[in-house]
């Protein structure tokens, strides 16, 4: 059974504002009976100041769809249309003290019905641009469509990438098979072959040491236990970076001839982050270019590495957000 909050149950068992509002002058219909949920929101708006005087809902759907509809009508009453439009689906979920990830789409439906009703009132056309796919990551409520779009936009090629960009797979990890299957299809579509990461006994990130009160003796890491940033025999980390740089330098003239370029951003163990600029960034060729660079790297270093293209602007923005 679903883990519904008490508030969800209350709004389901005793919904507020059920039924159509009389003399409504704004109507928003979303969903359909074939999809399994549908919501009609009716509003009575004061033409003088656009304040929502009354709101009512009619919903075909599950418990949380009905609860989300009821919550929505409570939230918008007394607000102006512009104020109401600032309500997000997360606000609806929060109002209900949370919804299970599988049910977040019910709150999305509420938000969309509101947009549709406002558009109806203003005589505008409202186009739904929201597409929903099968839920893949239940920890973070990320669906198939979202993962595919992100993979395409950013030329992602590993489960780790997908987690970094969308959060999908970052929780319990049981959806990794599903993400791999999506990657296999998406990579095939751009002419690549999905290569799974090697099995790794991932070491847990050391817990932040509490200042002063740590009773544990700081144990020196035995040097061998650390699979040293994948430096193959006889190559120091410094030599390795030099080699990586050399490979990049070697291929740059080729790219520049095509009015493109490539820059080394970071090296993190097996992952080599590069930015592709100019003609080759974002185009179909980008993926092939990355594959080619990766092949050269593997040959030059004599170890398996992964070349990961990063959008420089995005990376910078992320860094800033993190800082």
């Amino acid at each position: 059974m679903w883990d519904y909050s008490e508030t969800v149950k209350e709004h389901f068992y005793n919904p507020k504002n059920a039924g159509a509002v009389e003399q409504a002058n704004a109507v928003g219909d979303v969903g359909s009976i074939s999809c399994g949920d549908a919501l009609r929101l009716t509003l009575k708006v004061d033409p003088e100041n656009e304040v929502i005087l009354d709101a009512g809902f009619q919903t075909f759907g599950c418990g949380s769809a009905i609860a989300s509809s009821s919550a929505l009508t409570e939230m918008v009453k007394g607000k102006t249309l512009d104020e109401a439009l600032t309500i997000t689906n997360q606000d609806i979920a929060d109002f209900l003290d949370g919804l299970p990830p599988e049910k977040m789409h019910c709150s999305v439906m509420g938000r969309e019905a509101l947009q549709a009703a406002v558009a109806n009132y203003r005589g505008e056309e409202w186009v739904d641009d929201h597409e929903e796919g099968a839920l893949i990551c239940k920890c973070f409520a990320i669906d198939d469509v979202m993962i595919r779009e992100t993979i395409r936009e950013n030329s992602l090629s590993s489960v780790e990438d997908v987690t970094n960009y969308t959060k999908a797979g970052g929780g319990c990890s049981s959806c990794h098979e599903g993400i791999e299957n999506i990657l296999i299809e998406e990579l095939a579509a751009r002419g690549e072959v999905f290569v799974a990461a090697h099995a790794k006994g991932k070491k847990k990130a050391p817990k932040k040491q509490e200042a002063l009160v740590s009773l544990e003796m700081p144990v020196a890491e035995p040097a061998a236990a650390e699979p040293a940033p994948a430096a193959p025999a006889g190559m120091s980390a410094f030599q390795r970076i030099k080699k990586i740089e050399a490979v990049i330098e070697e291929i740059r003239p080729n790219l520049q001839a095509d009015r493109g370029d490539c820059e080394l951003l970071d090296v993190d163990g097996k992952n080599i982050y590069v930015s592709l600029v100019g003609a080759c960034s974002g185009c179909q060729m980008a993926a092939m270019t990355v594959g080619g660079i990766q092949q050269k790297m593997i040959e030059a270093l004599g170890e398996f590495v992964k070349v990961i293209p990063v959008d420089k602007a995005k990376a910078a923005a992320q860094q800033q957000a993190l800082a």
Binding site: A18, V30, A38, L39, Q58, F60, A116
Partner: peptide
């Protein structure tokens, strides 16, 4: 059924597809 947009006073609304006109389906 009382909550459902597809149900009228005493029965299903006529032509539920038309009575209920969502922007997307």
């Amino acid at each position: 059924r009382k909550l459902s947009p597809y149900w009228g006073e005493n029965g299903p609304v006529e032509n539920p597809d038309q009575a209920f006109a969502p922007v997307y389906a």
